Computed example of a mutant assay.
Amino acid sequence: MENPTSTLPDLRAEGDPMADRVVGELLDSGELDHANQVLHGLRHNDQLVPEDLPDVLRTFLLETHPLPAWVDHDRVARVHAFFRHDGVHAVSALSLAGLVGCYAVPVGAKLLRTTHRLDHPHRRLSETTQFMLHLMAEDALGPHGDLIPTIQKVRLIHAAVRQLVLRDGHWDVEQDGVPICQDDLLGATLIFSVTVLDGMDRMGVHCPPDVAEDYYYVWRVVGVLLGLRADVIPETLAEGRQLWQTMALRYQGPSSDGVELTGALLDFYHDLTPLGARGAVPAMLRRMIGPQVADWMAVPAGHWEKAIAHAVKVEERLHDAEEHHRLARRVLDQVGRVLLKAEARRITHGQSTEFDIPATLCPVTTPDLPPARDGHTG
């Protein structure tokens, strides 16, 4: 594979032509609302594509449903075991280090603030959590999973944001590139794979090399399904980490938009955290993303950082015990699943999250939802 670093400048001018064409036609024909209503019922990988969709959208769903021929299903299946074991840690790292890693890219943060779609932390976290739950499920990409329709909808959401921003006429393509360009998709894929693994490692959860490699591999598959060109994402974790270091130096930095988005995220978690432990989340975030990015994003420092450092040492001891004692592993796996479901219930209020294709750049408001009832996990 050609070294992706040599193609980075060109990737900023390229979007997702296939999805862009679909969304462009839906916007022009006024069929987007109807399409969203029908798509609400498309949730499972083995569902037939509804007949009452616009032809252009139905064709897109049919053509993007098959997995690439190079996908190794055994590797995907092995990652489910990783999620069953460490899923709660992966979601925590992605919901903190992953999102703030995106906010630390000034152009990306500017886009989020421009569209107003993703700067609402409740909706952003609901969508991220729902996506991760589908990704972590057994047979996620097989006939019994729910991930493929979710990926297709997210890809269309990206295309809609791209089209709407370009049609608005206020985005400087020459300066900032095409919104959600191939470069952005590549960076996001690396953030959600490389930096999540690094964030877990800094929290004392050390994945064996083969497990980390498989986790990265699954995100390669997901990135391609989301419209990323397969020829630009590195094949190995080591190559991906090297590329992300290059991209981070090139694109990450301080911005007022990034600070605002990070502040909104921390405020949201602040309201979910028990009163006496509200300094724990920014302390965890600072440890996962490192002091430079944390300072750029105005993540507050405090005495909780010492407590988190101590907790990491405890986690490392527990993780070592878990690896070497079968009974402990079963117990902690079960605890991890309970914690993950509880986190999902808190963020989604026990409601299923809809991935609607936006028709305007107006802010998306999320109404106050009732507390989750027993039996509903989102």
Rank of each mutant, 00 (worst) to 15 (best):
T7M: 08
G15K: 06
P17K: 07
P17A: 09
M18K: 10
A19L: 00
V23S: 11
H44S: 11
E51H: 15
L57H: 03
L62D: 05
W70M: 05
W70H: 04
V71T: 07
D74L: 12
A77V: 02
V79K: 02
G108W: 06
A109S: 15
K110E: 10
T114C: 04
R123L: 08
M136D: 05
P143R: 04
P149T: 08
V154Y: 01
L156E: 07
A159N: 10
R167E: 13
D168W: 09
V173M: 06
D176V: 05
G177D: 01
V178Y: 08
C181E: 00
D183Q: 15
D184K: 03
L186N: 01
G187M: 12
T189V: 11
I191M: 12
V194K: 03
C207K: 09
P209S: 11
R220K: 10
R220W: 03
V221N: 08
R229S: 04
T236F: 00
L237V: 08
G253M: 02
Y269F: 15
A277N: 06
G279W: 03
A283W: 00
P291S: 00
D295Q: 14
A298I: 05
G302L: 04
H303P: 13
A307S: 07
A309V: 00
A311W: 05
V312C: 02
K313M: 08
E316P: 04
R317V: 02
E322N: 05
L332C: 07
Q334I: 06
G336F: 13
E343Q: 14
I347A: 10
L361H: 12
P371T: 10
